[in-house]
Amino acid sequence: MLGRTSLLARNITQTLVRYHSNGGIPGENLPFSINNRYKLTAYFALFFGSGLALPFLIVRHQLTK
């Protein structure tokens, strides 16, 4: 038999799960838009490309000192 606290926690959890999202649209909770494929590709290339290029740029800077 469930205690009063367990029953209250279960009701709160069910309410949060039920009213949490607006239907589960893919990409709705992302901080960027995924509608434009080319813009998304450019953002990904800049983000990951900058992280990959940074060590090489730092080494080049140190070697030219």
Rank of each mutant, 00 (worst) to 15 (best):
T41R: 10
Y19P: 02
T5I: 15
E28P: 03
I58F: 07
F44L: 11
L57M: 09
G3Q: 03
R60A: 13
Q14Y: 04
F32W: 12
L2P: 13
Y19S: 07
P26G: 02
G49E: 02
Y38L: 09
I34V: 12
H20I: 09
G27T: 00
I25K: 10
F48T: 09
L2N: 12
I34Y: 02
L7N: 07
T15R: 14
G51V: 04
I12L: 15
L63Q: 14
N36Q: 03
E28N: 06
P55I: 04
L8G: 08
S50K: 02
A42E: 11
G3W: 02
N35G: 07
R4I: 06
M1A: 14
L40W: 00
K39S: 05
T41L: 11
L2A: 15
Y38R: 12
L52Q: 10
L54D: 00
T64A: 02
H20K: 14
F47P: 00
T15F: 15
R4H: 06
A9R: 14
L2C: 08
G24I: 02
L46K: 10
S33N: 06
I25A: 08
L40H: 01
L30T: 00
I58W: 04
L8I: 14
G27L: 04
N35W: 06
T41G: 08
T13W: 03
F56M: 07
L52H: 06
F44Y: 03
K39I: 10
K39A: 05
R60E: 06
